[in-house]
Amino acid sequence: MMENFEPVIVAFCCHYCAYTAADMAGSQRLEYSPNVKIIRVPCSGKVDAIHIIKAFEKGADGVYVAGCLDGDCHFKNGNNRASRRVEYVQKYLDEIGIGSERLEMVKMSAGMGYLFAQIAIDMTEKIRKLGPSPVRPLAMQASQPIAC
């Protein structure tokens, strides 16, 4: 299972920085892992704890919330609120037994396409090493190795 394991990672990206950086990575043709699936939100501060938890419940192996650099948030401090929320949810993930290391907060500017790609690669590798989420529904675990 581990060798063929292709993690599924959800990236919540803020419209103004991280999503733009993802587009930038695209126009610069920077290759990164296809395992990362982006969900666009207006601000990283919009990402509810429930969205993160639901992602895991549905079967995500890793989640990250990507916002603007400190001080650059289009909505003043949404990114910092997101950071704090991510920390809170990390603790909850430890309690649940999923492990806080499967959730991360990252920050980048709109121009950092390379950083977006790098984080996608790093996160995929990290989760690959961690293995599948312990709560991927049983049905999924029973099925064939999941390629992405």
Binding site: D48, A49, I50, I53, K54, F56, E57, Y92, E95, I96, G97, I98, P134, V135, P137, L138
Partner: peptide
């Protein structure tokens, strides 16, 4: 409502790990 949602998901996932749905 929000905490209810969070706890429901958390309990389900925690139990799933010991094979309980």
């Amino acid at each position: 409502r929000k905490e209810v949602g969070l706890l429901a998901s958390g309990l389900k996932m925690a139990l799933l790990q010991s094979g309980t749905t």
